[in-house]
Design a protein around this nucleic acid. Structure first.
Length: 145
DNA sequence: GCCAACGTTGGC
DNA sequence: GCCAACGTTGGC
């Protein structure tokens, strides 16, 4: 799961019991998020910042329910075209699991052949939520400092 | 700040 | 349904 640390970082995640993962407004990312189940783990990835890469781990504590911000005209995530009877966008809630001692950089992830199939390291990737295979998960866990 | 890559929009 | 124009993402 990607986040801009200037907006919401692994430290923010650490500071609260439960954090809403709102504002995903991309259908493909939404579909991946819909597949997330309570108890699932996720890497937290810091994007658009000085230290780009995986910063820690979160877990899903509530799965797939309506993201209310889509109906709030004052929200930056407001979507006028979403019908309340058939909401377009969903959220999950996540909780802090661990912050890594140092961010595992994108350049290291890209340099690792075992991770070549990950959408994250592929050209032009823009998904804010994307799947990780069990093998990739284990491999990345082994890379953290 | 630049710019490539991508998703979305809307006219036709 | 095509596709050009546009807006956004995100690494660098």
């Amino acid at each position: 799961m990607k986040t801009e640390p200037d907006v919401f970082s692994i430290k923010d995640l650490l500071s609260q019991d439960v954090s809403p993962w709102e504002g995903v407004r991309n259908y493909q990312a939404r579909n991946f998020m819909k597949e997330m189940k309570e108890g699932d783990l996720a890497f937290i990835y810091h994007s658009s910042c000085k230290d780009v890469g995986i910063a820690g781990v979160a877990k899903v504590v509530r799965e797939n329910y309506v993201d209310a911000t889509q109906f709030d005209p004052d929200s930056p995530y407001f979507d006028a075209k979403s019908d309340p009877a058939k909401p377009r966008w969903i959220r999950v809630d996540v909780a802090f699991v661990e912050a890594w001692p140092r961010v595992l950089s994108l350049s290291r992830l890209k340099a690792d052949e075992a991770l070549a199939e990950m959408p994250l390291v592929q050209k032009g990737n823009r998904l804010s939520v994307m799947p990780v295979t069990e093998a990739q998960w284990q491999h990345i866990q082994g890379m953290k400092a």
